[in-house]
Amino acid sequence: MQQLRTDLTDRQAIADYLLEEFPFVKDPGVLSPHEGGRSKGLQRLEQFPVEKYAKQRNFLDGTVSVLSPYISRGCLELEEVRQWALNRSKYNALEKFISELAWRAFFRLIYIEEGDRILQDIEQPKVAMKGHLTTLPEDIANGETGIPSMDTLIQLLKDEGYLHNHARLYLASYIVHFRKVSWRVGADWMYSLLIDGDMGSNHLSWQWVASTFSNKPYIFNRENLERYGGSVLPGDPRRDDPFNYSYEELEAQLFGGSFVSQPARTSGKYR
């Protein structure tokens, strides 16, 4: 039983100390801009213009709360954030934000009910996935896929321990559907890197993308990426661009007619 010191205040000194105490952890070489602590979470809450959220939330450079690390680690509680929002703005502007809090609760409820079964397919996949890779290709782990937009997202994840939700979905879709990697492998990798890693939200979102927790696979195309990528993503080369197709073309290329829509279970146990 070893007790850790608690007298450090400088963030770099804390980083150096933690790397000494946890020598198996990889040094990311930079400090995350997201500093832990309830006080920091409360500051972020006070500065969050919730009324802009509904219109801007899908844009990678739009206004989002970036409260997730603080809510996931319990520095802020879901209910207090909900109450804060309700006292802050008009009903119509709030619904989208509150429903995102409810998504988090929804994932928690499923996770509590299912336990570690969320690490397996919740439902049958709606597209063929049996041949998907069971290890993460190195170029993805290293952020060297050769696609600048995806490499930017991977580097952001590694440098900051955080990604905008839409960016997480892009990356998950790229890894599962374009690169044919098992969702579980991708989910474990992202979970390990996220400050706000929470297996309920993370693994079930990957299953939602994969189609084992949704009625269809989530894919995106060039048009969508350019619309929402904003100033965050660099342009990708047009040559051999895997995303520059219509959704119909992508479905044919990626799933080759294997897409099978199934009725969803309504509730409760499924085994």
């Binding site: 963030r11 933690l18 832990g36 690390p69 680690r73 321990g161 890197l193």
Partner: peptide, 10 residues
């Protein structure tokens, strides 16, 4: 990751 450990520690 170290970022998560540091966030928790802070």
């Amino acid at each position: 990751s170290k970022h998560r450990i540091q966030f928790i520690y802070e």
